[in-house]
Structures are given as C-alpha cells and as structure tokens.
C-alpha cells in the first residue's frame, strides 16, 4: 500500500483510457501523455497502458508501506526519496516506509508514477482511469487527498537489472520538445476561410488559465470563418486533440473531453504529438503545423511500435 502524505495539486489514477463506451456518452479519460505513461510502465515491467499516478505541476508526497519498485516519467519534477534527490525515468526500489517527495515541475506539466505490479483498484467499464466529472474509476472517482491509501496488486521489492532501468534524456524528453504540434486539418475545415486556416497555422497561441484535463483554452490571432459560417455545428463526435473554434479562439479537447461537441473543428492534433500538448501549462505557447492524414498515421504507428518494443537496458548485454 502507498499512503498519501500530501496529495499535490492534482494527482489522479490514469491508464490507457476507457474505450468502447463513447456511444453512451462516457468520456475516454486516461493519461494525457500516453508516451510517458508507457515509458514509466516499461521501467517497472508493466504493460504500457497500466494505471499509474498522473501528477500535475506540483507533485504529492507518498509513503511506501510495502517495499516496491517505481519509476516516474514525463515532465521533470524535483524528486526526493528519503531525502536524497532522484532522477526522472529511472527505476528505484523503495524500501518499507520510504518517503517519496515530488515537488514542483521544472519542465513540462505532467509526470507518471508507475509501480511494479500496478495499483489494486477496481476496473470500471474496462478501465482504472479516474473520471473526475463522472465521479467513478481511479481512486473513488476523484483526485487523491491526504491520507488516501492506494492498494498495490503485486508489489515487487526488487527487479532484475535495476541499474539498467533508465531512459536517456533524448528518449524521455520527447514530450518536452519545443516545436509546433502537427495537426490533420478537418473534419470541419470548410467552415473556415482560407485566411482563417492560414491564421491558425501561422499564429502563436497561449494556453490560458482555463486549461485542464478536459481541454485547453487558447488565446491568439482570431480565426476567420468562411462566409455565412460561424462556430456552431450540429453536435458530432469529438476526439482527443480536436481543435474546436466556438468563436474565433481555439479550444483543444483533451483526455476528459465530452464525447460529442457542437463546435466546428478546424483540425485535430496528431496522436504522436499529443504528449507534447499534455506537457504544456498555462502561459505556454502552442503553434500548429499541418500534415497529411496518412503521414500522421505513419508517425503514430512508428511511435506505437517503438513503445511496444522499447528496451531500457540496451547496454547491459
């Protein structure tokens, strides 16, 4: 069991998401940055989409009440294990009673704490992800609070090759790259003027304070609609990364988005670049560049196959 000494700003249990229930209005939820979730899980020999703690901006303090191997990947947070500074993207064995203190994010916004063997939490509609709005899944359907006790399924006090369970900077910092997020235009591109699409692709947009797991409200150059069009459509399906434009300013739909929406979508951020977006915080700048759908699909397949075949200990043989 892991005891929460202090919960941090916004710590929730998230896995690969709740798939298959959107036709009933159930949001997918799941990790905002699935790349870092997969990395953290790989370091402790879990499946890539196993449930982990998603940590936001200011991390929690936790006490291991059973010895267990863990790893933290994603945004780079100040971290101490029993008072000693520890590195991101490296597996550590916490001894009985060890205290892990995760401080503020130095870079990025979100990190994932995976424990070997996973958390022993109920699977609700196929997933352990927390639905904050629905109040179910994860740990009692809510963010962690002080004194919560997180049960572990099969805690491992030790794993082989501990010293090789580490990812180098280049690999672990992919979601922290500073470059435009690539998008596939549409599905309602025709609702916007040519100039509007140009503005969207050329502009710098700032993440406002009204940005959370549901969506990022951006602020920047106003996007022009096509003649006779506005931001309203008859509601249709919404995917993660969809860029809605209700009234000239974009909103990017994120993990906890509603399943349907009534605003025109100028573009969708490609799956391979969603981790970059997940690591943005209020005040950060986001830019967009367009790619063809099939190019986006190739990038996603490449990333998936990379994550599936990921090996931490290339050097140990």
């Amino acid at each position: 069991m892991i005891r929460v000494l202090s919960p941090g700003l916004m710590t929730t249990v998230q896995d690969g998401g709740r798939r298959g229930w959107q036709q009933f209005g159930v949001p997918v939820c799941g990790a905002m940055d699935e790349y870092s979730l997969a990395l953290a899980n790989r370091l402790v020999d879990n499946e890539p989409d196993e449930a982990a703690l998603e940590i936001t901006l200011l991390g929690p303090s936790l006490r291991f009440e059973v010895p267990c191997v863990f790893a933290v990947c994603g945004g780079e947070f100040e971290m101490k294990l029993d008072g000693q500074a520890i590195e991101p993207a490296r597996a550590y064995a916490a001894s009985f009673g060890a205290v892990l203190e995760i401080g503020p994010a130095r870079q990025g916004a979100r990190a994932y704490l995976a424990v070997a063997g996973g958390f022993d939490l109920p699977i609700v509609l196929g997933s352990r992800s927390t639905s904050l709005k629905g109040g179910f899944g994860g740990y009692e359907g809510r963010r962690l609070l002080k004194d919560d006790q997180l049960p572990l399924r099969a805690p491992m006090p030790w794993l082989p090759f501990m010293e090789y369970r580490v990812f180098d900077r280049e690999l672990r910092q992919y979601p922290l790259e500073d470059r435009p997020a690539r998008v596939v235009l549409g599905p309602q591109q025709e609702r916007f003027s040519g100039k509007g699409v140009e503005t969207f692709l050329a502009g710098s947009y700032r993440l406002t304070g009204e940005s959370d797991r549901m969506g990022y409200r951006l602020e920047g150059p106003a996007i022009e609609y096509a003649p006779g069009c506005d931001g309203n459509i008859i509601s249709d399906g919404v995917v993660m990364g969809a860029v809605q434009v209700p009234s000239g300013q974009p909103i990017v739909m994120m993990a906890d988005r509603q399943t349907t929406g009534g605003y025109a979508k100028i573009a969708v951020v490609i799956s391979a670049d969603l981790p970059l977006l997940a690591q943005k915080k209020a005040g950060d700048t986001v830019r967009f560049s367009a790619v063809e759908p099939r190019a986006a699909i190739r990038l996603w397949k490449k990333q998936q196959s990379f994550l599936r075949n990921l090996d931490f200990c290339r050097d140990y043989l």
Partner: peptide, 22 residues
C-alpha cells in the same frame, strides 16, 4: 475498430491504424 459513435447526423468511427489499414 475501437468504437463507433453515432450522433445526430454523423458517425465517428474510432480505429487502431496498427491493426486496420486506413
């Protein structure tokens, strides 16, 4: 095919491109 979401006048089909060629 991951899931299929019918709405007023559209159907969104979610798929896994690693398993189903686009």
């Amino acid at each position: 095919i991951v899931e299929i979401v019918p709405t007023y006048c559209a159907v969104t089909i979610h798929f896994d491109p690693s398993e189903l060629d686009v």
